[in-house]
Computed example of a mutant assay.
Amino acid sequence: MAKVQRFVSHDFTLRIASVDATDVVAEMQKLHNAFPVAASGVGKAMVGALLLASQLKDKQQIGLLFRGSGSLKSIYAEADFEGNIRAYTPHPQFEPESYDGGLKLSEALGKGTLTVARHVPFQKQPFQGMVELVTGEIGDDIAHYLHQSHQIRSIVSLGIYLDQQGQVQKAGGFIIEVMPGVDEAMVDLLQKNSEKQKPSVSSVLRDGGTPEDLIRPFMEGIDFMQLEHEHEIKYFCPCSKERVAEALTILGEEDLQDMVNKNEEPEVTCQMCGKPYVFTMDEVVEIRDRVNKKPLH
């Protein structure tokens, strides 16, 4: 099973993570029946979330919400330190008028914002930061967020390779973060390496490359070592009937009563994993009664 590979320069001032996330991105595409543009956008957000989450601590989680003026409207990806990932866009079947010039994700997402939320156990509110989207290309926007919100310079490269039928064949990426106290000569070398012509993430993976192969050209002349990171990545959604029932209370007493009057047994599908939850009339009545009692507490 795939894992996020973590590395660090010998003086600990460069922090690196890279991953081949093909399996989980292909699983997302299948669950949501995502067409090429959505598969590419959501896939890149998933890879970015996995890379950022791998640098957190046990039980911590990160959520990336891209909101834009384009046809996709939004992309959300959520990952935790343990390698669990799930993601979503409200318009997975969006198709542009033509694919001339390739997949134009920046057009499909449009102008907008990236909100990053970091959840820490036992903390009621997540830490949140928001930045403007600079390009609508997921990797650039994550790098912009790291610089604006944490003063961390970084190289973020994400790639999705689709076959001619629009199916995900390869997905992965890497992030190199420059930590405070770094020797500027090392930054210059990193810069010089990144300016040379480098193969894209998707072509390296397509040619059988490993996560380490993705970062090696950037680290020429810089000593680095691998850190332990044992967690396998998997598409995981913690949804349950109880959580969905809780979400139904948001409808309010009036709408729930309307369902009872019409004898409607709602079927709610989880947006993240596509799992359907069917509620019987007795269960709808029970949820309505719970809403009715809430103001008394």
Rank of each mutant, 00 (worst) to 15 (best):
D23E: 14
K124N: 15
E246Y: 10
L64T: 09
F127T: 11
K234H: 14
K30Y: 10
A2R: 02
E137L: 10
V25Q: 01
K111M: 06
L296Q: 14
P238V: 08
S40P: 01
I222N: 03
S200V: 01
F279E: 12
E107P: 00
R288F: 14
K104C: 11
I155N: 00
D11I: 09
G41C: 12
V244N: 06
Q197S: 14
A34C: 08
Q167D: 09
Q55E: 12
R118K: 04
L256T: 12
I215G: 00
T269G: 07
K124C: 05
M272G: 03
L189A: 05
F218D: 04
L158R: 03
G110E: 09
K111S: 14
A247F: 05
Q167A: 15
D23A: 15
G221Q: 03
F218I: 08
E254N: 13
Y76C: 10
E132G: 13
D207P: 01
V178T: 08
Q226I: 05
V8G: 04
H119L: 12
A143L: 08
A143D: 04
S98M: 14
V291G: 12
G112P: 01
V120C: 04
S203Q: 15
E230L: 13
M186W: 01
P126W: 06
Q5P: 00
D140Q: 14
M219P: 03
G208C: 11
R290I: 09
T210R: 04
N263F: 04
V204C: 02
K196T: 11
V37N: 01
Q128R: 13
S240V: 11
D23Y: 11
D140L: 07
V37R: 02
L296R: 14
G112N: 02
S202K: 13
R216P: 00
A79C: 02
R153G: 07
R206T: 15
G209I: 06
I152H: 04
H91E: 15
P121C: 06
Q151K: 13
R290G: 08
Q55W: 05
F224M: 00
G101C: 10
Q197I: 11
M1P: 06
H32I: 05
V182E: 03
E82A: 12
K262C: 11
D258G: 13
S74P: 04
D11V: 10
I152N: 07
L65Q: 06
Y277T: 07
A2Q: 11
R288A: 15
G110T: 09
L56N: 00
Y277V: 12
G129I: 06
I160E: 08
L64E: 08
K73A: 09
E286Q: 12
D213C: 03
V8I: 15
E27W: 08
Q257L: 13
E242Q: 12
A49E: 01
S18T: 14
K196I: 02
H32N: 09
L205H: 11
H297P: 13
D289A: 09
V278C: 12
E132R: 10
L256P: 03
G101F: 09
P238N: 11
T113R: 01
E82Y: 01
E177W: 06
G112Q: 02
Q29G: 07
